[in-house]
Design a protein around this nucleic acid. Structure first.
Lengths: 226, 226
DNA sequence: CAGATTATGTCAGCGACTGACAATCGGCAA
DNA sequence: TTGCCGATTGTCAGTCGCTGACATAATCTG
């Protein structure tokens, strides 16, 4: 968590404190591991890539790899979590007038767009995240790990929503329900994006997401038949 | 899949065909493995139980265990999948007049109630399923595997819904969206049930589920503040 | 520069999982 | 009943993910 790639978003803790050599080197090997792993996964698949391969590609011991990542899954999902963090940041800064549902919708759209306009290569790039999404969806072990991460992220969404609307999530179930619905909608969109030959790139993902959001009302409405 | 505990629901394939000794023995060891695993998981936790322990409790080799279950997760989740199958069965037989959302809601409630009234011990029992749910929720590896299974089940729900309403899920997104929302709602309910000191037993679960469903409308409605 | 921290490498070991082969058991027909 | 065929099982060896313990080397602090 503390070793995560820092975002443009300034965290209040580290003001003016230049990171020492130690810190920089750590960040460096971490990035290298993520990038090497990513390349290997893309090239030969997740299962057929061993941790030893990743480690020796960066010229560190296997043991060191496991000091940076708790398991093989984590290095694959590292890129995604940066994107998720940015989404949370967006959500926190939506105007208060927006409906909770509107705020959520606007936040992911904004997050994808902003990330799309940022650097398009290297670790943490949007391209990486999108490629990863494909690998994740058809690697059972990774998909499982990813889903678990997503539900943890949902907890955070609940908290932000409750804060924003000024209510206690233990009493009022609406934040929990909305976060759950939102999460499932997003996943459906991801699935569709990876499965179908949807327009590629961040903008394509935005299109798919909006399409699913638009179906929320109709899906919950009474009968579907005329 | 073929080795799953048969349900009271008659499958058209096996009419009057008494299963031979071979088949019976297989089913027997499978059940024994599930039951032994369940007991061990409950007693000492999932992580601290080795596959060797489970296997030797049933007096088979470790290799045999892995011929019945692809991995340790699977034996833990076996009980759940029986319950899920029954839910699908219920959904298929809901009256056509019901709204899709109504049908889904009625189906889980019915499934929990029916299972609650069935045998209350042994493999596949309701008690087992509920105990398992607790173990699953606080065992990261199991939770991950469970979530993946759930999303697969969601696909099936999509299919049943589309069939029921007579539309093509590739064209119309409503079944996908509704299934996703339904799944997330259920998971929220499970989470709440295991976390809080909700009324125990199947009926307690039904109460929680209905409470969440009731919040669906309000959560999606405009502003939450007065 | 010395001493306290901290990152890294090495090594040994456990447990999940798999392929290959041999032995055994149930199903079935002569 | 006998005998053969295919399915089930056990054994063995091996790979890979992952961890604890300890020693070494690098950075940081004063």
């Amino acid at each position: 968590m503390a070793a995560r790639t820092p975002h443009p978003v300034g965290t209040p803790e580290d003001l003016g404190r230049a990171p020492g050599l130690r810190e920089r080197k750590k960040q460096q090997t971490r990035d290298a591991l993520v990038q090497a792993a990513h390349a290997l996964f893309l090239g030969q698949g997740f299962a057929r890539t061993t941790v030893d391969e990743i480690a020796s590609a960066v010229d560190v011991s296997q043991r060191t790899f496991f000091r940076y990542f708790a398991n093989k899954d984590e290095v694959a999902l590292a890129v995604m979590s940066d994107a998720e963090d940015y989404f949370i940041h967006c959500l926190r800064h939506r105007p208060a007038e927006e409906t909770p549902l509107q705020a959520l919708r606007a936040s992911i759209v904004q997050a994808w767009r902003d990330l799309g306009n940022a650097r398009t290569s290297g670790p943490g790039s949007i391209g990486s995240a999108l490629e990863l999404l494909r690998i994740i969806e058809d690697t059972p072990a990774l998909l499982a790990a990813h889903l678990r991460r997503v539900t943890e992220q949902e907890r955070l969404v609940v908290q932000v929503l409750a804060e924003r609307e000024g209510l206690d999530p233990a009493e009022d179930l609406r934040p929990v329900v909305l976060a759950a619905v939102f999460g499932s909608l997003l996943r459906a969109a991801h699935l569709s994006w990876t499965a179908e030959q949807e327009p590629a790139g961040p903008e394509g993902m935005v299109v798919v997401i909006e399409r699913y959001f638009d179906q929320l009302g109709p899906a919950l409405a009474g009968h579907w038949r005329d």
